[in-house]
Nucleic acid binder design. Structure first.
Length: 204
DNA sequence: GTGACGATAATCT
DNA sequence: GATTATCGTCACA
């Protein structure tokens, strides 16, 4: 499968957030290939978006003003990492937060990383909750601050390759979660969920 | 099944 | 010193 080219990311941030649904996130960890299809994203823009780190240009947010297709990883709430992909042309800020993936390969590596021990709670939670949150998928895939700045358009330790198309009928669009305040930008529909037919209630 | 709440540290003002 | 793009656990139904 081909890796997504930089031009894929050098577009409007909201467009990229939608287009990333169904694409494959791949992490090579200790020789193992861990992968999953992207199932949930959120767009974060620039000066028009108070919820975005790039609302202002600071040392931390500078990466969002840089080359598209680069990983932006940050640490939050004292315990979690979140993975983003930089979007838009250089000089124009933007990034997409990867909020969830549908795991494909390397489950046996992900489970212990997430504290899913064999024999634990028998009969319950068949991998539910393994990679369905931004902090959770970073834990499962071993993504931390070291990955900040990685080029996701090159097939190295972390990259994104072509996955499968996702129909509009299977996409749910909602306001972003976890952002607080009452600015007008916060209510905009910049969260995208891939909801295959037959799926149950929305996560969180 | 849902909803509340505290942990905990980098980053910015 | 305030803020925060989350998670796990607990109570309750």
């Amino acid at each position: 499968m081909p890796v997504l080219p930089r031009a894929f990311f050098a577009r409007d941030t909201v467009t990229v957030a939608r287009a990333l649904l169904g694409q494959r996130l791949v992490r090579v960890l200790d020789g193992h290939r861990l992968s999953g299809l992207i199932s949930e994203t959120e767009a974060y823009r620039g000066a028009d978006d108070v919820a975005s780190h790039a609302y202002r240009l600071t040392p931390r947010s500078a990466i969002m003003y840089g080359l598209p297709g680069i990983a932006y990883v940050y640490f939050i709430y004292g315990r979690n990492f979140c993975l983003n992909v930089v979007t838009e042309s250089s000089g124009q800020p933007g990034a997409v937060l990867i909020r969830g993936i549908q795991p494909e390969t390397g489950l046996e590596i992900m489970r212990p990383r997430r504290g899913f021990v064999a024999g634990d709670r028998p009969g319950r939670r068949n991998d539910r909750g393994l990679t369905d949150g931004p902090g959770k998928l970073c834990q499962a895939l071993g993504i931390d601050g070291q990955m900040k700045g990685a080029d996701l358009t090159l097939p190295g330790a972390l990259f994104i390759e072509e996955g499968q198309p996702v129909e509009d009928a299977q996409v749910e669009v909602t306001p972003r979660v976890g952002v607080c305040g009452d600015d007008e930008a916060l209510g905009r529909p910049w969260r995208f969920l891939w909801r295959p037919a037959g799926a149950t209630a929305a996560p969180r």
